[in-house]
Write a protein that binds this DNA or RNA. Structure first.
Ligand code: MN
Ligand code: MN
Ligand code: ZN
Ligand code: ZN
Lengths: 150, 150
DNA sequence: GGTTGTAATGAGACTCATTCTCATTCTATC
DNA sequence: GATAGAATGAGAATGAGTCTCATTACAACC
């Protein structure tokens, strides 16, 4: 959580986004948001279950999907079979991912402003000639994390 | 298929890579390679099944995983629930992907040399300070393909 | 060109992350 | 504080991907 001064401001914005799609900001959803907003890294469902065991798996999935629909949460397909979840980019500084192809861990990294300008320009070039309408981009670095070298 | 003059050269290289991991280059594997090498875009399992129905699903999965282990094929996690497969980068020019978040289609795009230099430099920066050992990168543009705009 | 040991294959059972169902519990509004 | 609609929880269902094991192809030898 970086772009809000207080947790209350965060919750207010989440509530706004949920209301836009006629959804309530309930206790379960609040707990998921609080967890994701305070996490250093994207979390898998079992991460979430381990940290908030009182939320049933089926509800956690539904909360995440509702929050994603509202634009509050983003889903990442990692190199293992588990999806990972984090706050959407509106809630975080724009960043990219280091994906460990051994253990599936996802590490957040922040690019420089200059680099992002270059990426944005390039993305425009690439997509224009395809008639593709870009909404976002993802730069993932694939490799091995410190724990998984040798 | 771009880096080989003839299909025979392609097959020879595939055979070499398979032999390195003590695997034979059989008819089924050859059919999968021929399909992927001639495809304009990464293919899902059902794409493969549709185009080469005589290969059973379980064999197709195994072929793809063996070919991936040999470094012949790469697996892409798209934004839908289906993995997609393409020839590994040794067999193609380095390129990136446009991912349609509506239909899951994956489009290949080739970046300029200058852009790739920038990406490589940035990747080095990002990974160095994390103790992460990069093996490759993926720049995906997320958005909507021509078919999926409105 | 047969024999034999080993690798590859195919059919289908199985796994397990994710989604769906539906009975129950909240919650907003009157 | 009734009522209608929304959210929730428990468990069933789904389905992409993996595994098993009986059968088939192959390579290396004779
Ligand atoms: Mn991230
Ligand atoms: Mn590609
Ligand atoms: Zn790792
Ligand atoms: Zn599309």
């Amino acid at each position: 959580m970086q772009t809000f001064d207080t947790v209350e401001e965060l919750h207010e914005f989440v509530e706004l986004l949920l209301h836009r799609i006629d959804q309530r900001y309930t206790a379960g959803r609040r707990a998921v948001v609080e967890l994701l907003a305070s996490s250093e890294r994207p979390l898998s469902i079992s991460d979430i279950e381990a940290r908030v065991p009182e939320i049933p798996r089926s509800s956690a999935y539904r909360h995440l999907s509702d929050l994603q629909r509202a634009g509050v949460v983003g889903r990442i397909a990692a190199s293992d079979e588990f999806a990972r979840f984090e706050m959407a980019e509106d809630f975080l500084h724009h960043h990219h991912h280091l994906l460990c192809s051994s253990c599936g861990q996802v590490i957040d990294v922040t690019p420089t402003r200059a680099f992002e300008r270059t990426v944005a320009r390039m993305v425009d070039e690439l997509t224009a000639e395809q008639g593709f309408r870009a909404t976002s981009h993802a730069l993932d670095v694939i490799g091995h994390c410190t724990n998984c070298q040798h």
